[in-house]
Amino acid sequence: MSCAQNPSGRYLEVDSSRIYFELAGNPQGKALLILHGGLGSSREMACLQAHIPADYQLISMDFRGHGRSTLGQQPLSYARYQQDAEALLNHLGVEQYSVLGFSDGGIVAYRLAASHPGRVTRLIAIGAQWRLLPEQVVVF
């Protein structure tokens, strides 16, 4: 099965890294951020795009150090991936969005929703764990 991606990918400079992202679907539609799993790239999620309703604007990105994004000088962490996703969404002027994340992308999706519950309207996490005990402190 061929899963072609949008050939008009772009880059956003974020803290010494070039974050690769693509936009597809309806530019005026509801935003859906699509996050890939660890050691992958947005290419692994491209096949899902054909099954997402046409009224969504699809935002795909490669985490830093993955796919077509450069590593930069910041250490890799879920918090760093979250910050990069937030920088991209802010750059695009996206106020509210749904998020679909696979594995590590799902963990980042949970972090985004926990940090900004008013911005994340829907969350779909596939194969992602999240456990926050009452006494745990999470640094966002």
Rank of each mutant, 00 (worst) to 15 (best):
S2F: 05
S2G: 06
C3R: 12
A4T: 09
A4K: 13
A4L: 13
P7M: 10
G9V: 04
L12Q: 00
E13Q: 12
E13L: 11
E13K: 12
R18A: 11
Y20C: 06
E22C: 05
N26D: 15
Q28V: 01
L33S: 00
L35S: 06
L39Q: 11
R43A: 15
E44V: 11
L48C: 11
L48P: 05
Q49A: 11
I52A: 09
P53V: 02
D55W: 08
L58Y: 01
I59G: 04
M61L: 15
D62S: 06
R64E: 07
H66S: 07
T70K: 07
L71K: 15
G72T: 08
Q73R: 14
Q74C: 08
P75A: 03
Y78D: 00
Y78M: 11
Q82S: 10
E86F: 13
A87Y: 02
H91L: 01
G93L: 11
G93Y: 07
E95A: 13
E95R: 15
E95S: 14
V99W: 07
F102C: 13
D104G: 04
A109E: 04
L112G: 07
L112A: 05
A114Q: 09
G118E: 15
R119P: 07
V120Q: 05
V120S: 06
V120N: 02
R122G: 02
A125N: 02
I126F: 12
Q129P: 01
L132T: 10
L133F: 02
E135D: 12
V137S: 10
